[in-house]
Simulated scan of single mutants.
Amino acid sequence: MLLWFNAIGCGLMAGLFFAFSTFIMKASGRIAPAAGIAAMNSINEVILRSLFMPLFWSTTVASAVLAVFAVAVWDEAGAKAVLAGGVVYLIGMFVCTLAIEVPLNNQLKSAADSDSALPMWQRYLARWTQWNHVRTVSCTLSCALFIWALVERG
């Protein structure tokens, strides 16, 4: 059941990150910088109190548990795909979010009312989106690997 949950959860996360990479950030970059900054800061506040957070944490924990479990049952069908899916998700989504995306969001929030906000906005858009692409691909690949493991397990 955990493998099914994570396959679906990683797919949902991939879809969310895909939306940001393909149109939300592009639309934010097309409006006035002050409005884009305000919108992104608002999104960053709202997302912390949304259903995104339980999904974010539960898929992260499930990926870690599944990766450990895969090592323990290495000779069973699908174990290699489960391990790969868990590691890709943990590094490409979780580590990337905590090490890069969250600090960028905090910098944007701190700079929102300062003179450095406007020049920072263009750098933020480029860097945040670049790393969000990494999260999108990682979540998509993890979803595919978890589905592959389910197929292998029959």
Rank of each mutant, 00 (worst) to 15 (best):
S50H: 06
S116K: 14
F23S: 14
L118C: 07
F69V: 06
R49S: 02
A79C: 05
A14Y: 06
G11H: 00
K26H: 08
P54W: 02
F17L: 15
M93Y: 15
G36P: 04
I43P: 10
Q107D: 15
A14V: 09
F5R: 04
A67W: 00
S58E: 05
L3E: 06
T97W: 03
L66F: 13
F18C: 13
A84T: 01
P54G: 01
N106W: 02
S50N: 12
L48S: 12
S50T: 03
N41H: 02
I100L: 12
I100G: 08
A67D: 06
L12K: 06
L55E: 04
A7W: 07
L55R: 06
G9I: 02
V87M: 12
A7Y: 05
S116C: 02
G92F: 10
A35G: 07
V88R: 07
P119E: 00
R30P: 12
K80V: 00
G29Q: 04
L16M: 14
F52M: 03
W4F: 15
M40V: 05
C96Q: 13
I37C: 05
A64T: 07
L90Y: 04
V68F: 08
A34D: 10
I100M: 11
A81Y: 05
A112N: 03
K26E: 01
L104M: 11
R49P: 07
P33A: 05
N44W: 03
F23N: 14
A79N: 04
W57C: 10
K26I: 02
V73I: 11
I91E: 11
R30W: 01
V46N: 13
F5P: 09
A67S: 10
Y89P: 13
I8C: 04
R30C: 15
V71P: 13
D113R: 12
A72I: 06
S58L: 15
S42W: 07
P103R: 02
W4E: 14
F94K: 08
M93T: 14
L98S: 10
R30D: 09
P54R: 00
D115P: 08
A99Q: 10
N6A: 01
A32M: 09
G92M: 05
F56P: 10
S42D: 08
D75I: 00
M120T: 02
V95I: 10
P33W: 01
T59W: 06
V71S: 08
V102W: 01
L55Q: 03
I91D: 06
F23W: 15
V88M: 04
L90A: 04
S28L: 15
F17N: 15
V71R: 10
L104I: 07
W4C: 12
N44C: 00
W4M: 15
N6T: 00
S110D: 13
G36M: 03
V88G: 07
A38P: 14
F56A: 06
P103M: 07
M13C: 09
E45V: 05
L66A: 08
A99C: 12
V65P: 14
K109G: 13
W74A: 11
M93D: 14
A111Y: 11
G92D: 07
M53R: 04
D113V: 01
Y89W: 08
M93A: 14
L66V: 02
A64V: 12
P103L: 01
A14T: 04
A67Q: 06
A35S: 15
A84D: 08
